[in-house]
Simulated assay, not measured.
Amino acid sequence: MSEYKFLTGLTSGFTPVIDAGFSLEDYRHIDLSVQNEILSQAQLDAPEAFQKYLDNFLLAQGGQIPWGGYNEHRGLYRRSGLFSAATEEDLIRNIHIGLDVWAPVGTGVLAVLDGRIHSFKDNNNFGDYGPTIILEHEFEAGKFYTLYGHLQRESLKDLQAGEKVKQGERIAALGDASENGNYAPHLHFQIIHDLQGKEGDYPGVANRKELEFYLSNCPDPNLLLKMN
């Protein structure tokens, strides 16, 4: 991952990707992996039950914003055929390659860097991103993209590809379960080196067989956000 060291120099410290009213002290890292024995599949299967789990986590840990999930093997995706239709274990998509920030519906989503709108789409399958925006960024070290998923549908209204955005600019808001793919409200944030010709969408969950490629193509978002 040494080729992505330049990313760390693009932000000077903690860089919010949601409403700047939250400070770094409000964030708490959360484990949503299959190793978390406290988290049951029943809690994962329903947005309301999962939100209650998040609320209880914050009551115990303090803070306001749970975050985490890069390169995390999760049971969350068992409920959707979009990820779990494969019959071979190595082909089941269950390893998260973005970073999630869990926050209330309507929370503003901020551009992490200067860039332009590359594409956008409502990926409205069960368990999918729902409304999604992809930004394109160009620097001396090269071009890459950032993906913002699980948004409100209203966030896609009047967008235009090529439109410029500034770092810290509000570009969207978080959607609820009826529009965000049937999840508790949160942002999926992902860095992508090569979009492979896709527009408004890119895999955010990988299978074990292809994991090495996806981790190489999608470096840790915390290189930019610096949450820890």
Rank of each mutant, 00 (worst) to 15 (best):
G115E: 06
T87W: 01
G162M: 04
D26R: 04
Y4F: 15
Q196L: 06
A20R: 03
I95W: 04
N125Q: 12
D114V: 14
P203W: 01
V17S: 03
W102I: 06
G108V: 05
L223P: 00
K164G: 05
I92F: 11
I171Y: 11
E88T: 12
F50N: 14
L10I: 01
H118Q: 15
D220F: 02
L99W: 01
V34P: 03
D19M: 12
P104D: 12
F14H: 14
E210A: 04
I192V: 02
L211M: 07
H73P: 02
V205C: 09
P203A: 13
Y27E: 13
G62N: 05
D201C: 03
V17F: 03
G13R: 15
G168A: 15
N56W: 11
Y145A: 02
S119F: 15
S84A: 08
N217T: 04
Y27W: 12
L135H: 01
P203K: 11
G200T: 06
L225N: 14
G108C: 09
Q160T: 10
A111F: 03
I97T: 03
H29N: 02
G142N: 10
I133Q: 01
L135M: 04
A184V: 12
H186S: 13
K166P: 02
K166G: 01
E163R: 10
L224K: 00
Y183L: 07
W102H: 14
S23F: 04
E179C: 04
F57C: 08
G21I: 02
P131Y: 14
G197D: 03
F14V: 02
L32P: 03
E154N: 04
P16T: 10
I38E: 07
H193R: 15
N56C: 08
D26G: 11
L147I: 08
Q41V: 11
Y70W: 13
D128F: 02
E163P: 00
G13L: 03
I192A: 01
H29L: 12
K198R: 10
S2N: 10
I134K: 00
D100R: 09
F126T: 13
L187H: 14
G200V: 13
E88R: 10
S40L: 00
P203G: 10
N125S: 06
Y183F: 11
F144P: 00
V109G: 09
E154W: 07
I38D: 03
L225G: 13
Q190K: 09
Q196S: 00
L76K: 07
I134T: 06
Y77N: 13
Y77H: 09
R74T: 09
Y27R: 08
A49I: 03
H150A: 01
N125D: 14
T15C: 12
G9R: 15
G63S: 14
I92W: 12
Y4L: 14
L24R: 08
S80W: 05
K166W: 08
L44Y: 05
I65Y: 10
L135D: 06
H186R: 15
F139G: 02
T87N: 13
H96Y: 07
L7M: 07
D55G: 05
G130F: 05
R170K: 13
L156F: 00
L147E: 06
I95Q: 12
N222C: 04
D158T: 13
Y183D: 11
K52T: 04
Q196W: 09
L32H: 08
Y145S: 10
G162A: 11
L215Q: 15
T87I: 05
F189V: 06
D19C: 14
G142R: 05
F189D: 04
Y214M: 11
P66H: 08
